[in-house]
Simulated scan of single mutants.
Amino acid sequence: MAMYDEISAGAVLYLKEEGPEIKYLILNYSYGHWDFPKGNIEAGETELETVFREVSEETGIKDIQIIEGFRQQIEYKYRKKSKLVNKAVIYYLAETKSRQVVLSFEHNDFGWFSFEHALMKLSFENSRKVLRNANNVLTCLYSN
C-alpha cells in the first residue's frame, strides 16, 4: 500500500484564444479555496481516466487534449474528522477549446484567468508552483 491515504488527479486546463494570451481555468470550491479541477482516482482508473472524468464532472468540459510530458505531483496533509490524511495530487496539462463551464455542486464559481491573475487567485503555494511550471512549458511550446 502506498504511503498515501488519498491520491487525486487533475488538470491545469487552459484555453488559447487569438494571439498569445493563454487563459487558465480555476475553480472556487465550496470550502472557499480556488484550485484546479481534480478528484480522487477511483478503483481501476488510470490517472488520465480520472483527469478526463473529473474535468467533465466538475466543469462539463469534455474536449480536453493532454499536453505530452507534463506530470506534476504535489503532496499535503489535511484533517478529515480527527484523522490526518496524507494526500497526493497528480496534475496533467490539458488544452480545451470550450469556454463554457457547467459547474458541479462542489463549486461556487470559476474563472478563466491570465497567468498573473491565476497566480493571485490560487489559494495554495503548491498549486501556484504547478501553474508556474505549466506556464513555462506553454511559453516554450507557443514561442516557436
Rank of each mutant, 00 (worst) to 15 (best):
N86D: 09
Y91G: 07
L103T: 05
R71P: 03
L119P: 00
N144V: 14
E54D: 05
E54N: 09
I66Q: 08
Q100A: 05
F52M: 01
K129L: 13
Q100S: 09
R71N: 13
R132P: 00
Y78R: 12
Y4M: 11
N108D: 12
K129M: 11
K80T: 07
K121D: 01
G44R: 14
N86W: 08
I41L: 06
N133Q: 13
T59V: 12
I90D: 00
F105V: 11
S114T: 15
E54V: 12
N133F: 03
A134K: 05
H33Q: 09
E116V: 15
V12K: 07
E42H: 04
E116A: 08
T139I: 06
Y142P: 04
A43G: 04
A94D: 11
L122I: 15
T59W: 04
E42N: 10
G32P: 03
D35K: 02
A43L: 10
S123R: 07
F70C: 12
E58S: 08
E125G: 02
E95L: 11
K38L: 06
Y4C: 04
A88R: 12
G111E: 10
E125L: 12
D109H: 11
K77V: 15
L119I: 15
C140W: 08
K23I: 04
K87N: 09
H117Q: 10
R132Y: 04
E49Q: 14
S56M: 07
F124H: 14
S143K: 08
R132S: 05
G10V: 14
L84R: 02
N144C: 00
V130M: 05
I41W: 04
H117V: 15
V102L: 07
A134M: 09
L93N: 05
R53C: 09
Y142R: 02
I74Y: 01
E116W: 00
I41C: 06
N136E: 13
K121A: 02
I67R: 06
Q73A: 14
V101Q: 06
N86S: 11
I41S: 03
V12C: 11
L48S: 08
K38C: 07
T59R: 03
W112K: 02
R128H: 07
K23H: 11
H33V: 14
I61D: 09
I90G: 00
V102D: 02
L141D: 08
C140Q: 11
L103D: 03
S127M: 10
V85H: 00
L119A: 00
G69V: 10
I74H: 00
F36A: 01
K80R: 13
L141C: 00
S114E: 14
G60F: 10
S30V: 15
